[in-house]
Design a protein around this nucleic acid. Structure first.
Lengths: 344, 344
DNA sequence: GCAAAGTGTGAGAGCGCTTCCACTAGACGC
DNA sequence: GCGTCTAGTGGAAGCGCTCTCACACTTTGC
């Protein structure tokens, strides 16, 4: 800093030095490095050589100061509890995102917002172009995050239909309604007449959509849709919900459960009640993210193609970032897939 | 862009505007925003007001161009296979890192390097101060990554002793040798006389250290340390290794297994062989990251406090970034914890 | 009372990069 | 032959910020 420019710490080479070594102007060097539009082969190759010999790497801050791009996107996880990382849904998402990103020179910034103050911090971070876009994995209700993001005019895609602002924001979702309809139809077709459901929490769109699907299928089959209990998507919650459901409706011969984890809890209850699955009570789950194969009996369920969703969402986001979309909120709805195992 | 400066997209306010609104110079505004050293209360409050009213957020690129800091660190995962995200080790690490980071305004960049070319990409990314530091979760052998990072003079901490450059680089590790010694001593104390081990892959320091620990304990007990088979830390690998081990040494009455997953495979083999655990053969695992509780019988094992390791590593890294360390490579060795269950 | 030290401030010089613009050659049509 | 393109180039203007430095003005010490 003071006096001699070249101090002990090896200052990394700048574009200036590259230009000098290559014998061209800084402008030409810059052009050669970025795509090489309007650069003669001669200039290009001498710049290339200079870059190699100096081990030049562009300073991202300087670049992004002028380009207004950071070549990174954020994966935003609002209100994560500590389980988030081990959650197969989240893991699959991350896998999908990184797969797409690995082809594209973009980096991934993980933004975890604890409930409360840190949402503001997250928003502040996103506000000033720290990243080129955000992928919001809004598993849960989003305390207006969607609204605020929609206002931000930052490229942004939600994984799963956001609770609010669903019309102004791009998102990728599985067709939860269709999925749960399919699940219900499996039971109808196998002859179940009294079909109940363990739905998810009422503040999650996926849960609401699935409940809708069940209702639709029930009404189409001319069956009563009164046997509904809500759970919280956990195994213990499913257990409690199943106990309540069978206490209130002991005559059920089939249940549609909005998540495999809850279904796993329900299976325990049924086993304790001495009901055979699927003979006395048929069970269909939802998710197929791992647990469904390991229950006894293995669950017939509806698969959420998480990785595919994440990939699509990421691609959508990259398109937005590149300005390739028309500028209006896009959405992708992925068809669910029925996976038949032994529980129904 | 063309013509009018103030176009439809709301240009975010700059420090200049804040200064103008507050009626101070840019320099004073900057000072007020960053800590407020040498700023009169009057100036401070008018800058604060201006910031609030304009919704000013500093441009990170501009700031980092001059400060040479990015306020973000990278979590580097070399050669991740697709399982990495679901791996409880990795999940715990991420949990620990984010916990520390959430107090510190630093953000987390996830850097996943597929084998091959993308290692170079990772290194290039780290080279030019894209991040202030790197936390390398080098589960596996690191193809010289440690060496290259050590040369980079980028603050850097390894989770787990790196294969090379262990003397020039900071790392946090559990005392694997002591851990496996403890594990072995459990068997010695319960009266086992013929104790074998299923070790991990020879290219991982943790595996080598654990094998050392087993050897030390065996020799201290005056027992022969010839019954060694290497596995690959997977369940299937553990199964194969156990088959080989018991084919060669049918008289073993205790085995020390370098990971719970391998131990789980070994338990299957023992069950197929008709050996009761722990009565005929006592088994000790390693990790206690979840599987140990779910095997039959539940495994006595050595706990790796992953989250704590990650927290310590992150704190160490932040110290390096802040220049609070003496500049020499530091290391933290965490004592392992024996967890007694039913398998020994 | 006056030098010495401390406090608050603004002007201005960059940080390293992209990109607009003006300019020069050579290629091309007529 | 002359205007008209186009390709290639360099000069120079910033991008938005921090921070040094010089300067004015207080406070303090003796």
């Amino acid at each position: 800093m003071n006096g001699t420019r070249r101090d002990t710490t090896s200052t990394s080479p700048t574009l200036d030095e590259v230009a000098r070594v290559a014998g061209v102007s800084r402008a030409t060097a810059s052009r050669a490095i970025n795509g090489g539009q309007r650069v003669s082969p001669r200039a290009q190759s001498s710049v290339d050589a200079a870059v190699r010999s100096l081990g030049y790497v562009p300073n991202p801050a300087a670049r992004s100061l002028v380009t207004r791009r950071t070549d990174s996107i954020a994966v935003v996880v609002p209100e994560p509890d500590d389980r988030v990382f081990s959650d197969p849904f989240f893991a699959g998402t991350l896998r999908g995102v990184t797969r797409v990103l690995s082809d594209s020179d973009m980096q991934l910034v993980l933004l975890l917002a604890r409930p409360g103050a840190s949402t503001a911090r997250t928003l502040r971070y996103l506000t000033n172009r720290h990243v080129d876009g955000a992928l919001v994995v809004s598993h849960h209700r989003d305390d207006g995050l969607a609204d605020q993001l929609a206002r931000l005019d930052l490229p942004c895609v939600f994984g799963g239909r956001p609770w609010s602002a669903g019309d102004r924001v791009a998102y990728v979702d599985v067709d939860n309604t269709a999925g749960e309809r399919m699940a219900t139809e499996v039971l109808v077709e196998r002859g179940c007449r009294r079909i109940g459901t363990i739905a998810g929490p009422t503040d999650m769109t996926a849960a609401e959509d699935r409940l809708d699907g069940w209702r639709q299928a029930m009404s189409a089959a001319g069956l009563a849709d009164d046997a509904v209990v809500h759970g919280d998507f956990t195994e213990a919650g499913g257990q409690r919900a199943a106990e309540e459901l069978f206490a209130r409706h002991p005559d059920l011969d089939g249940i549609v459960v909005a998540s495999d984890l809850m279904a796993s809890g329900a299976l325990k209850v049924l086993s304790a009640l001495g009901r055979r699955v699927p003979d006395d009570v048929a069970v269909v789950g939802y998710d197929d993210l791992g647990v469904a194969e390991r229950t006894t009996p293995p669950l017939t369920t509806v698969r959420q193609p998480v990785e595919e969703m994440a990939e699509r969402a990421t691609r959508l986001l990259l398109e937005q970032v590149d300005g390739r979309t028309g500028g209006h909120a896009m959405r992708v709805i992925i068809p669910p897939l029925l996976v038949r195992r032994d529980s129904a």
